[in-house]
Computed example of a mutant assay.
Amino acid sequence: MKKLLLVLFSSLLISFTASSAIDVFEFDNDKQEEQFKELSQTLRCPKCQNNTISDSNAELAKDLRVKVYEMTKAGKSKDEIVDYMIARYGNFVTYKPPFTVATSILWLGPLFVVLLGFSVIIFNSKKKTQKVTQSEEWDAKKEARLKALLDEKNGDKQ
């Protein structure tokens, strides 16, 4: 009997936690619902770093979902909601931050790394080409000297 009560109690606890994780939002029309879904998939949770507010279970993400819902229900446009979130949480809340002085390293950093990599490769290949050219000249001089020494040595044995 105790085992049955324990199983029943634990199943109730699990069902309560599962039901608390599901947010149910009701909208006036399909356009509002679509806008809410799109915004909740494109806004980033400031706490979770790389999760959208719809994917995150953090309290901040839940609050952001509620705020997006309220603003959507109030008739705010997508741009107005995104501008509000940027004003409150910064450019980090969007996955595509605008190009500003502060975000220029995010936009130009990868390009700089690629250009730096190509310039190092080109510099090293030119350096190796110069070494090969210099070693060929060196080999020609040394080979002439070596032939002279061999001829001299062969001349002594004969």
Rank of each mutant, 00 (worst) to 15 (best):
G109E: 02
V132K: 15
D23N: 12
N50Q: 06
F16Q: 14
L13C: 11
A18G: 15
D156I: 15
E33D: 04
L115F: 13
F27Y: 02
S54A: 10
L43T: 03
T72M: 02
K96E: 05
P98C: 12
T42P: 00
E137P: 00
T17V: 12
V66Y: 08
D79Q: 08
L146H: 08
K127E: 07
V93C: 05
L64C: 06
L13R: 04
T94P: 02
K142Q: 12
I121P: 01
M71S: 11
C45E: 02
S77E: 08
A148T: 09
D30L: 06
G155W: 05
V68D: 01
V66M: 12
L8W: 05
E34D: 13
Q158D: 14
A140S: 11
L111Q: 05
I22K: 12
D79P: 00
A61Y: 01
L150C: 05
L64A: 02
N91R: 04
E33A: 10
K127Y: 09
G90K: 06
L64E: 00
L6Y: 08
F99Y: 07
F118E: 03
K3R: 15
G155L: 13
A144T: 14
V68I: 10
Y89V: 03
A18I: 06
Y89S: 02
K142C: 03
K141L: 15
E70W: 02
P110R: 00
A61W: 02
V7A: 11
D30C: 04
D156E: 15
F99W: 09
L39S: 01
Y89M: 05
T94S: 07
A148P: 02
D63A: 07
A18R: 11
F99P: 01
V120G: 07
V66H: 07
T52R: 01
P98W: 06
K2I: 10
G117T: 13
I53P: 00
K126E: 11
L4K: 14
E26I: 10
L6A: 13
V7D: 14
Q49A: 08
E137W: 05
W138Q: 13
A87G: 15
Q35K: 10
Q49R: 14
F112P: 01
D30T: 10
S77N: 05
K153D: 08
L149Q: 10
S20R: 11
L5E: 08
L150H: 10
E59T: 14
N154F: 13
E80I: 04
L116G: 07
T72Q: 01
D55P: 00
L149I: 12
L108A: 13
G155S: 13
V68K: 00
S54H: 06
F9T: 14
Q41H: 14
A61E: 03
L60D: 02
E143P: 02
T129V: 08
D30W: 04
Q35F: 01
K153C: 08
Y89N: 03
L111A: 10
Q158I: 14
I14P: 00
A144I: 11
T129E: 09
K62G: 04
P110L: 06
Y95V: 07
